[in-house]
């Protein structure tokens, strides 16, 4: 067998083959890209001067701030709610589990837009908010619902409650991805239930939680544009407010898109860093790889270990 090999060949000098279909595909992609750029560059409705002017227009920046703020706040509440719901769904307590199941079923099963409009009109459903002793006449606090829940509050409430249902499933999936042997080992070392969860299970679950959470954040960022139906001046509604008065619809939509893309890109970079952080022990950090040969032999060992 050995003699049939030709030892003087070194495959490191090998070149990739390009099939004709790949050439055709490349040309097609470039042509379409050129067409799109051409359309934007020469279209009289795309006035770059207007775009640049409105990109940093005060009301647009205010709207941008509202969008960021809403995204962060709704995600924060959504994640905390999601963790709570996930631990309820995994709890042996039937009542807790059932309640969490119904919550997730309801909020995932109805359109977000409908939920938002509902919260916006909550005052029709519950005209007054009262804090007191139930089923008696004793009240400590009473106010009109519209005074307590502003449109912005209703927007935040709607987005966060909906998000919690989705984050619950993300977190639950992550927790289930960690084998029960991990918590058994932790418990038999004398770690408390809380330590086991926070120090052993959750850090390993994060690897499965971070990527879909990144998706959720980006979805939330864009989902905040729905609050325009509640007259909340987010990025999109601010752009809308300008183009309904000056008619420059396309430039202002582009302005909004540019900002959405900038934030999405930043989020994407942040997510990659987080993913690398939680990949510890699963993927070897690239910095420690010395030579190709060493790296490949380690990978083999890693795969063997993981297969067990």
């Amino acid at each position: 067998m050995q003699s049939t090999l030709q030892p003087e060949i070194d495959i490191s000098t090998a070149r990739h083959r390009h099939r004709p279909s790949q050439w055709v595909a490349s040309v097609l992609v470039l042509a379409i890209a050129a067409l799109i750029i051409w359309t934007f560059a020469t279209n009289k409705n795309v006035d770059w001067g207007v775009i640049m002017k409105y990109l940093t227009f005060p009301s647009i920046l205010d709207g941008l701030w509202t969008t960021i703020w809403l995204t962060v706040a709704a995600m924060a509440i959504g994640i905390v709610g999601g963790v709570v719901l996930a631990s309820c769904r995994l709890s042996p307590n039937v009542l807790l589990k059932g309640a969490a199941d119904v919550y997730v079923w309801f909020f995932r099963g109805t359109p977000l837009l409908v939920q938002l409009i509902f919260w916006y009109n909550i005052a029709i459903f519950i005209p007054r908010v009262e804090i007191g002793i139930p089923f008696t006449n004793v009240t400590f606090f009473s106010a009109s619902t519209n005074d307590v829940v502003s449109p912005l509050g209703a927007a935040l409430l709607g987005l966060a409650l909906n998000e919690a249902a989705y984050m619950c499933e993300v977190v639950r999936g992550g927790l289930l991805s960690v084998s029960s042997g991990q918590s058994e080992a932790a418990q038999s070392l004398g770690l408390s239930g809380r330590q086991t969860f926070t120090q052993i299970v959750l850090p390993q679950a994060m690897r499965a939680i971070v990527p879909p959470t990144g998706n959720q954040v980006i979805g939330m960022l864009k989902g905040t544009s729905l609050v325009s139906v509640m007259a909340v001046y987010d990025l999109f509604y601010s752009a809308q407010a300008i183009y309904t008065t000056n008619g420059k619809v396309i430039p202002l939509l582009i302005v909004a898109c540019i900002w959405y893309l900038i934030i999405t890109s930043i989020l994407y970079l942040f997510q990659s860093r987080l993913e690398r952080r939680f990949a510890r022990g699963i993927v070897r950090p690239p910095a420690k790889r010395k030579s190709n040969r060493q790296a490949s032999s380690r990978t083999t060992v890693g795969l063997e270990g993981a297969a067990r």
Partner: peptide, 14 residues
């Protein structure tokens, strides 16, 4: 009480 498992159960992130 210490315990050693068939599947090792080492903490993968450490």
């Amino acid at each position: 009480i210490g315990m050693v498992f068939q599947q090792f159960n080492l903490f993968q992130h450490m």
